[in-house]
């Protein structure tokens, strides 16, 4: 989803996703809150998790 810019800062959608996972939520819940398509949420959360900015716990994600 390109949540991270090449300089390591968050893109607008990255900021939206990080804000949406302040408490543990599923990708489906994030899609509902942000209005983003589910595939974009899944891809974005994966990218943010790889960067250590969100934590995966089973089916839910939360900010690191």
């Amino acid at each position: 989803m390109a949540c991270l810019n090449s300089d390591g800062t968050l893109s607008p959608s990255g900021r939206a996703l990080v804000a949406a996972v302040s408490s543990p939520v599923t990708p489906e819940e994030v899609a509902g809150v942000t209005g983003l398509a589910l595939f974009r949420v899944r891809a974005g959360l994966r990218e943010l998790a790889a960067a250590g900015l969100v934590v995966v716990d089973g089916d839910t994600y939360r900010a690191a």
């Binding site: 989803m1 974009r40 891809a43």
Partner: peptide
Amino acid sequence: HGVVRLAD
């Protein structure tokens, strides 16, 4: 829109 997988 970034890197996507079929599974997404």
